[in-house]
Design a protein around this nucleic acid. Structure first.
Lengths: 116, 116
DNA sequence: TAAAGCACTTTCCTAAAGGAAAGCGATAGT
DNA sequence: ACTATCGCTTTCCTTTAGGAAAGTGCTTTA
């Protein structure tokens, strides 16, 4: 017998949503993924492509994203040594999320601009 | 003439994504929307349906969500007065985001469980 | 009359996020 | 020799998020 409770159970949806949010939390992770995905591979290019992103924050976020296997850091060993950041194939699975967020943002701005 | 820069421009995507994240930021807003959407209308039901959610945080998030026109607070004026929370039709536009986040979370857990 | 429920608020506190600015070690260009 | 660039790190500081616990005013139920 299930436990009786007065509220509807939403954990089937809430749990996986929260699992995802733990991976892509904060202001910067998705912007960084988008920037790298669009072809920015160098530290300073990524930084310059995103308004307000400081090197300290970028370095930290890149480490987090590497741990989650969404970005790989590649050391190119000629002279001079170059560092290149690329998305992993796994990062491509985030595309539906990114497009959904993008579409909603575009629509939301339009809504605010027109009505308020 | 466009300004020359060494990096690829990603602001077309980054900006609307960030606009969206500003609305649904934090650990709790989407879980609350999911819970209300599934039929939890009372303050304590919403609270009880989401693990770890405290009344202070719930009250604050409900206010934020009202301001963004995603939830409406309805006062039902018989004796005793009842308060009911409902999603606005606008909140339904978040569904693609919620489903994308849910799917990714489910898949991510499976990935972690199987391989690491 | 006491206890419990509802919808919160208040206070206090900690941890984490994030911004500003400077610096650093290596290399490259002038 | 000097300056600039790259990929960071370090320090310092402020802001925000969020958790714990208690309480409040009202009402209902036992």
């Amino acid at each position: 017998m299930a436990v009786k409770k007065g509220y509807n159970n939403c954990l089937d949806t809430v749990r996986p949503v929260r699992d995802t949010l733990e991976v892509i939390n904060g202001k910067w992770k998705l912007p960084i993924i988008i920037s790298v995905g669009i072809g920015n591979e160098r530290f300073t290019d990524i930084q310059d492509s995103i308004d307000g992103l400081t090197p300290k924050v970028l370095a930290k976020e890149l480490k987090d994203l590497e741990e989650h296997q969404l970005i790989k850091r590649i050391v190119i060993d000629d002279y001079p040594v170059k560092i290149s950041y690329k998305l992993t194939p796994y990062a491509d699975t985030l595309n539906p999320i990114i497009f959904a967020l993008k579409d909603w943002g575009i629509n939301h701005k339009r809504k605010i601009f027109n009505k308020e």
